[in-house]
Simulated scan of single mutants.
Amino acid sequence: MDKLPNDPMILFSTLNMLLRDDYTSLDELCDDMNVDRTHLENKLASVGFEYSRENNKFW
């Protein structure tokens, strides 16, 4: 996960930008960047965000 920011708020913004611009799903992003999806979701859930598959973004 060294390619992604550690701060949850910056991570939220970065992931949504990547999902909007470069990836069709969170699974695709995680596979491509070799990061653990559960870790990302748990980190963002700790500050109140969850992933929406339908919208392909965290909110």
Rank of each mutant, 00 (worst) to 15 (best):
N6D: 12
D32K: 14
L15M: 06
C30E: 02
N34R: 05
F58Y: 14
P8A: 06
L29G: 08
N16G: 12
F12K: 04
M33L: 13
L44A: 04
T24R: 14
S25G: 10
A45Q: 08
H39M: 11
F49C: 11
Y23N: 07
K3Y: 09
S25H: 12
D21S: 09
L26V: 10
E41C: 14
G48H: 06
S13Q: 05
L15A: 01
R53Q: 14
W59E: 15
L40V: 08
S25M: 12
I10K: 15
E54Y: 07
S13D: 14
L18M: 08
T24A: 09
S25C: 08
R53P: 00
E28C: 11
M33R: 04
N34Y: 13
D31Y: 12
D2N: 14
N34P: 00
P8K: 00
N6Q: 11
M33C: 07
R20S: 07
H39D: 07
E28Y: 04
D7L: 13
D31G: 06
L19S: 05
M1L: 13
L44Q: 03
T24I: 10
E41D: 11
T38R: 13
E50G: 04
L44P: 01
Y51G: 03
L11V: 10
K43H: 06
S46Q: 01
T14H: 14
C30P: 02
D21M: 09
M33H: 02
F12C: 01
D21E: 14
V35F: 08
V35C: 09
I10W: 11
E28I: 08
L19I: 11
T24G: 08
M17N: 10
P8L: 06
T38A: 12
L44T: 00
M17K: 13
R37H: 00
K43E: 11
E28S: 06
L11S: 02
M33N: 00
T38Q: 13
K43D: 02
N56Q: 04
D32Q: 08
T38D: 12
L19Y: 02
K43F: 02
K57P: 00
N55D: 15
N34W: 04
D32H: 06
D36R: 07
N42Y: 02
L15V: 03
F49K: 09
D27Q: 10
M17S: 12
E54K: 14
L26S: 05
E28W: 04
Y51D: 00
K57R: 15
L19N: 02
M1Q: 15
I10Y: 09
T14M: 07
E54Q: 10
R53E: 10
S13N: 14
H39C: 07
L40N: 00
D32Y: 05
N6L: 10
T14L: 00
E54P: 02
R53H: 10
L29T: 05
D7Q: 11
K43P: 00
L29Y: 07
M9C: 07
M33S: 05
N55R: 12
D21K: 12
N55E: 10
G48S: 09
M1G: 11
L29E: 01
L11K: 05
I10D: 08
L40P: 01
V35W: 02
T24Q: 10
D31A: 13
G48A: 04
R37N: 03
V35D: 06
N16I: 04
